[in-house]
Design a protein around this nucleic acid. Sequence first.
DNA 1: CAGCGACGCAACGGTTGCGTCGCGACGTTG
DNA 2: CAACGTCGCGACGCAACCGTTGCGTCGCTG
Lengths: 185, 185
Amino acid sequence: MLRGDITEAIQAAVVEELAAVGYGRLSIEAVARRAGVAKTAVYRRWGSKLAMVLEIVAGVAGRKLPLPDTGTLSGDLTVFLQILTIALRHPLASQIIPDLLAEAARNPEIAQTLQQALRANQHEIGSLLVGRAIERGELPEGADPDLAVDLIVGPIYWRLTVNRDPLPPDYVPRLVTAVIAALSA
Amino acid sequence: MLRGDITEAIQAAVVEELAAVGYGRLSIEAVARRAGVAKTAVYRRWGSKLAMVLEIVAGVAGRKLPLPDTGTLSGDLTVFLQILTIALRHPLASQIIPDLLAEAARNPEIAQTLQQALRANQHEIGSLLVGRAIERGELPEGADPDLAVDLIVGPIYWRLTVNRDPLPPDYVPRLVTAVIAALSA
DNA sequence: CAGCGACGCAACGGTTGCGTCGCGACGTTG
DNA sequence: CAACGTCGCGACGCAACCGTTGCGTCGCTG
């Protein structure tokens, strides 16, 4: 019954508005304005700003990253890090992700939605990468997939999103060798 | 001329309000209300919400962490990580830091203030830790202090503040050995 | 072709915050 | 004691947004 093109316009507007002003300052009026849509069209779909954002965010964050098997741990890590750096550099992502994380610190529903979307994905990637490497004999049996994820994602996120430093050109390969050394210990 | 106790009450109120609702939703009215102070008292001190927050944040974020010399790299790292985990777990810090980082992504003045306060401190800590370790022969000559900081702070920040997972009891020592292995490569 | 529902539009009363102003009270300074 | 400046208080007009309502239009469905 609800027109699909309008729903999509609203979703896109929410994402843009989220990037522009953040969840705290996001208003239904501004979303409708940006979507070129009447406020009533929004309220017909969602009962509140929270419900609207939760549904849209869950939809976007739930997508899985493709994770090719390059044949070596170092290759897998390099590909994964490159995908990650591109994603984190995306203007929309680099504004929305920190904002939602900040909001998650005070809103349990947002926190739960983000965790549900991210944690499973993250654990799966870690298990996959480390599992393959162990099968190949590149890592010892006891290597911890969750620690691996922290070691891979943490430094990149810290540098790109928190510190907002540009990446030195050889940063990714150096990080890859460092992570492999760390996991082999 | 301006009463010091009132200034302090306002500063404390700003910090609390920042934690409670974030920079985006922070209002002068709420700050004055929380501080038990008239709105005019705030406007006598700062001309705008941005100026007020910047001055207060710079004052808090500029403080330096003590960094004892334990005699070994592993000891230094352990102490530093423990201080860091305690700081990041602090309720006020864990809400305010992500919020300001998110706001920094859209407000250059906030970004600059944070960078100025954090980057220098961070680089100094990295250089100090790595420098000592190289002198002791615990790390090779070429070890990169900035990469070291990413490897130390990134995983902890990721797990504590982004993922909001509790730390497994032996996480810090395992991270320490992993980091040392990574930096030795 | 008749009916239904989503649509845009405009307006509603209510809330919140903005930045400013004038007032009288209080305490310090000269 | 007189002057000054900060203080709290309350109010101002203005703007934005809230969530809801009623209206007429449009397009699909039966």
